[in-house]
Design a protein around this nucleic acid. Structure first.
Lengths: 203, 203
DNA sequence: TCTACTTTGTTGTCAATGGCTACATTGGCC
DNA sequence: GGCCAATGTAGCCATTGACAACAAAGTAGA
């Protein structure tokens, strides 16, 4: 084997990439800084130069996760013909992402991020809800949905689909396919918004 | 201090009780078998006689959590005058429990339980959804809700409220109180079920 | 009561981990 | 060429979970 140069060059990227693989294979608890260092052929102290903490590395993973998820959501929001189809598509994209990357999802919505990372994570994580809100507003203007505060409605949609995402990712939905759950949930949400949601009228 | 007898007598209960306190104060990661043993004045090897694993202890915590939660849900399901009020009460009980015991909730819905514990946990955890299903059936018969497969509808209700519970427990709902989120979500669900949910008609 | 036997708790040990510090190497900048 | 910050190395330490050997105490049968 070729001997390694003293400076890795792209250690940070390499660590993140390998860490992402590891948590998807073994979960967050299966992630060890020392093993990670071994995996990328570097001494056990090297990661500390790029992430002051194990948590700092995890925060970086979470941020990358949100960005990846947002890309998919935005993609789903733009492709499709009618409003309702796009709405379901966004929901499906969210839940599919969760099922594809369950450990990453749990990291993204973990509560123990460093305070400095939290702000960035929060704002990045809220993009999904904004997409939903825009779609709801559009559907209201088109007359497909009843009037009601789009912010409240979008929050409820996000909350509900987050539940589906979390449960699907955790394999807590037995006897039902992920698609069916998303279909049933989006049907419920759309029916509620079409009929009018009392709590959203007050705001 | 009185010297301890060689046999503790109620070590298992003492460990569970103290462990419950610990995870609520410091999260699951803050739970250490050795520290736990110190807390109850016992040697570091003693817990192994009652829980073969750290995970086995956590599984026991999760089971206790489900049982505690089920008691609250059943209580809420029985108190109240009209159907819709009871429905909201159950939802509120669920989310309140999650907010009061966030670490416990994450343990309850963790994916890494031991295979033998999983079955018991799963069946215990499904009681909540059964309560919801019974209420929905009752409301349909009373004419308050449109027809539709109660199992599907109950699942969607559970999924949605689980989302609210998880997000509320993780403090991911800013700018809104827990009560408002529960109100908005239950309003949405009830409105949807009253209007009729397409996916629930097919079944 | 004496005696096996099981349960429960103790003590010592082991490998692994995260974090820290002192040190080495490298590359950039003046 | 020489200084200096950035990057990587090596060693150390306390803590942890798991395991094994041993001790103490309760139990059940002759």
């Amino acid at each position: 084997m070729t001997d390694q140069p003293y400076h890795h060059g792209k250690l940070r990227e390499a660590l993140l990439e390998r860490a992402m693989e590891t948590i998807e294979e073994a979960g967050v608890d299966g992630l060890s800084l020392r093993q990670l260092a071994r995996d990328v052929n570097v001494s056990h102290g090297a990661p500390a130069k790029h992430f002051r903490d194990k948590q700092a590395l995890i925060d970086a993973l979470a941020l990358a996760g949100f960005e990846s998820m947002n890309r998919r959501i935005h993609g789903a929001a733009q492709s499709g013909d009618h409003l309702r189809g796009r709405f379901v598509g966004v929901a499906q994209a969210y839940v599919d992402f969760a099922v594809a990357h369950p450990a990453l999802l749990s990291v993204m919505y973990s509560t123990k991020h460093h305070p400095d990372s939290s702000a960035e994570l929060r704002s990045t994580g809220e993009q999904g809800i904004q997409v939903a809100q825009a779609m709801i507003t559009e559907a209201q203007e088109a007359g497909d949905l009843a009037a009601g505060d789009p912010e409240t409605l979008a929050m409820v949609c996000f909350v509900s689909l987050h539940g589906a995402a979390v449960l699907a990712a955790g394999k807590h939905l037995d006897g039902t396919t992920v698609e069916d759950v998303v279909a049933a949930t989006t049907d419920m949400l759309w029916a509620g918004m079409a009929a009018g949601v009392p709590a959203a009228q007050l705001s």
